[in-house]
Simulated scan of single mutants.
Amino acid sequence: MARLPRLTLPGLPHYVVQRGNNLQPIFMDGQDYACMKDLLREMGRRCGVVLHGFILLPNQMHLLVTPETAESLPQFMQSVGRTYVRTFNNRHARSGTLWEGRYRATVLEAQAWLLPAMVVLESQAVEQGLAARAVDYAWSSARHNAGVQVDGLLRLHAAYWSLGDTPFSREAAYAHLLTRGASEEVSEVVLGAALKGWVLGSESFIQSLQLQTERRLSRQKAGRPVASPPIKTE
């Protein structure tokens, strides 16, 4: 079956996954990781993409972003991808492709899914055995969002601001969510939606978006849609 065209809806958060070809390494050392962070900052500013969360893993990267226009995210990913591959190949004396193929992405209903998706994203280092805690992993947004250190690459989403009235209360509430982690079911739903390109949200949210595009936004199947995960901060 032909793959669905990628969907970009301006002003809404997107969970993006870009993987190495055959899951081969895309980062070999600290300089590679730092180079990618610099590119995310520069190209985000140029293309109109706001970064809320990220994790750079040895063979893939996950991003949580909001594009300003319908062209912002494709231009951003193309610019980041091409520039990084050229730099990576020059540094490591290699040639050829680095990426698995086109990036994968899903649109999120922010109120219900942004925080769970961020927890899923920032927990990937723990899931893959790269760190004991999400905040121990250097190449992700976890330390910023949990209040451990400031990273100017990131901009907080309104859903994050709703966690508390002060920076401390928001950071503490999010740190609690991150420590508790995401359930296996929520992780499967978020990552599955990103890889398959289905919109992640309530039925009414999906129906409202369907008015903006002819592209099918959800899998046609019997039964009720996946319920939104509860967000508890205590």
Rank of each mutant, 00 (worst) to 15 (best):
5 P>E: 08
5 P>R: 03
5 P>I: 03
6 R>M: 07
7 L>R: 00
8 T>N: 14
12 L>P: 05
12 L>G: 00
13 P>G: 07
13 P>C: 11
17 V>H: 12
18 Q>F: 03
19 R>S: 13
20 G>V: 00
20 G>Y: 01
21 N>S: 05
21 N>V: 07
24 Q>R: 12
25 P>F: 07
26 I>V: 15
28 M>D: 03
31 Q>T: 00
32 D>R: 13
32 D>K: 09
33 Y>E: 11
34 A>H: 04
35 C>I: 01
35 C>G: 06
37 K>A: 10
40 L>D: 02
42 E>C: 10
43 M>D: 06
45 R>V: 11
46 R>Y: 10
46 R>N: 14
48 G>P: 08
48 G>A: 10
56 L>C: 01
56 L>E: 02
57 L>G: 09
59 N>W: 04
59 N>L: 11
61 M>W: 15
61 M>G: 04
65 V>L: 14
67 P>M: 05
67 P>W: 07
69 T>A: 09
71 E>T: 12
71 E>N: 05
73 L>M: 01
74 P>Q: 10
74 P>D: 13
76 F>V: 09
77 M>P: 06
79 S>H: 08
81 G>A: 15
81 G>I: 13
81 G>Y: 11
82 R>K: 14
82 R>N: 15
84 Y>S: 12
85 V>S: 07
89 N>V: 13
90 N>Q: 12
90 N>L: 05
91 R>S: 01
91 R>I: 00
92 H>G: 04
94 R>P: 04
94 R>L: 08
94 R>F: 06
98 L>C: 10
101 G>S: 14
106 T>E: 01
108 L>P: 01
108 L>R: 04
109 E>K: 01
110 A>Y: 08
112 A>S: 09
113 W>H: 12
114 L>G: 02
117 A>M: 04
119 V>A: 09
120 V>Y: 02
123 S>W: 04
124 Q>D: 13
132 A>H: 12
133 R>H: 10
133 R>C: 07
135 V>Q: 11
136 D>L: 08
137 Y>S: 04
139 W>D: 04
139 W>T: 02
140 S>P: 07
141 S>G: 00
141 S>E: 00
142 A>F: 05
142 A>T: 05
144 H>F: 02
147 G>T: 07
148 V>I: 13
149 Q>D: 15
150 V>N: 07
150 V>R: 15
158 A>W: 07
159 A>N: 13
160 Y>P: 03
161 W>T: 02
162 S>H: 06
163 L>P: 06
164 G>M: 14
164 G>C: 13
168 F>S: 11
171 E>Y: 09
171 E>R: 12
175 A>N: 05
176 H>T: 11
177 L>D: 04
184 E>S: 12
187 S>E: 03
188 E>K: 14
191 L>K: 05
195 L>D: 08
196 K>G: 01
198 W>K: 02
199 V>Y: 01
201 G>M: 12
201 G>N: 08
202 S>R: 02
203 E>A: 12
207 Q>I: 00
210 Q>P: 00
211 L>T: 13
213 T>M: 08
216 R>N: 08
216 R>I: 08
216 R>T: 12
216 R>Q: 13
216 R>A: 13
217 L>H: 10
218 S>Y: 01
220 Q>R: 13
221 K>A: 15
223 G>D: 15
226 V>T: 12
226 V>D: 09
227 A>L: 09
227 A>K: 06
228 S>A: 15
228 S>V: 14
229 P>S: 03
231 I>E: 05
232 K>G: 01
234 E>S: 14
